[in-house]
């Protein structure tokens, strides 16, 4: 019974985490900001290290750290007219370096880097599951409520702003939810799977369909199928879950390339 419960919990967490990341993926892809998934998840590493040192709540500290850093990046880029992608890459490396120094200084805790890279859905507890569930509901609600604003923000943000569409507000909310999604799903999914779930589902579906609402729904379906499939594979072959899901999604991506109409 215990095994059953913990397996079911891990599977539900995997499905919910895939769903909430995948519905962001079409917008991440259209806005060409897939590097943000990578960047936020690496910055989160420093947040986790700070939480470890201070003994504060890991997720809240990490989320605040990532959001504050995102605003600092935005401000610095604007203030000094820097290329934003460069500033992001600088802060990505610095966050990692900062985290490694902090962890090396805190001798009391042995940090397992591989669990951070690939996550471990089997370690998800009841409270993690509730948080992942809330995140999935928030993500779904956000996409449903602000679909049109996100659509036009992705088409051309400057023109959308000129046409008095509230893109600044929606963009801030988008980035905060993206950061929250990454931080909340990091334990279950790890950096690699989080980054993959933010780009692979939409990249695959866009090869087959160009109607955005359909792309959003199918991206979620594909990510959930990959989560269930990856979960089963990892169980049967005794390989890590996160890595299995990524490989399965990559397989779907290759298949979609083969099926893609030449344009």
């Amino acid at each position: 019974m215990f095994t059953f419960n913990f397996l079911i919990r891990a599977l539900i967490a995997s499905v919910l985490s895939s769903l909430s990341l995948a519905i962001f993926s079409p917008f991440v892809s259209l806005r060409r900001i897939s590097y943000l998934g990578e960047a936020f998840s690496h910055m989160a590493f420093a947040g986790i290290a700070i939480a470890l040192i201070t003994g504060l709540n890991g997720r809240i500290v990490t989320l605040l750290f990532v959001i504050v850093l995102a605003y600092i990046i935005g401000w610095l880029s604007k203030r000094y007219k820097l290329e934003e992608t460069n500033t992001i890459t600088i802060f990505l490396s610095v966050s990692m370096a900062f985290a490694i120094i902090l962890i090396s200084l805190s001798s009391a805790y042995a940090f397992d880097l591989s669990s951070y890279l690939f996550g471990n859905v089997l370690l998800v507890n009841q409270s993690d599951l509730i948080q992942v569930g809330i995140m999935a509901v928030l993500s779904l609600a956000f996409i449903l409520i602000f679909y049109h604003q996100l659509f036009y923000l992705s088409y051309n943000a400057e023109m959308a702003q000129f046409l008095r569409i509230p893109v600044t507000f929606v963009n801030h909310l988008f980035l905060i939810l993206l950061a929250a999604n990454i931080v909340i799903n990091l334990k279950a999914a790890g950096i690699i799977l989080v980054s993959a779930q933010l780009i692979l589902p939409a990249a695959t579906i866009f090869n087959l369909v160009r109607h955005l609402p359909t792309v959003i729904v199918l991206s979620a379906v594909l990510a959930i199928l990959a989560a269930i499939g990856g979960f089963a594979l990892s169980w049967w072959l005794n390989i890590p879950t996160g890595a299995s899901i990524v490989m399965l999604e990559f397989f779907f991506f290759l298949a979609s390339l083969a099926l893609r109409k030449k344009s």
């Binding site: 992705s154 088409y155 046409l163 569409i165 866009f206 955005l212």
Partner: peptide
């Protein structure tokens, strides 16, 4: 970008 001509015209009413 997955938009039709009509989607772009409707952008003028999205506010």
């Amino acid at each position: 970008f997955p938009a039709t001509a009509k989607d772009i015209v409707l952008m003028g009413l999205a506010a």
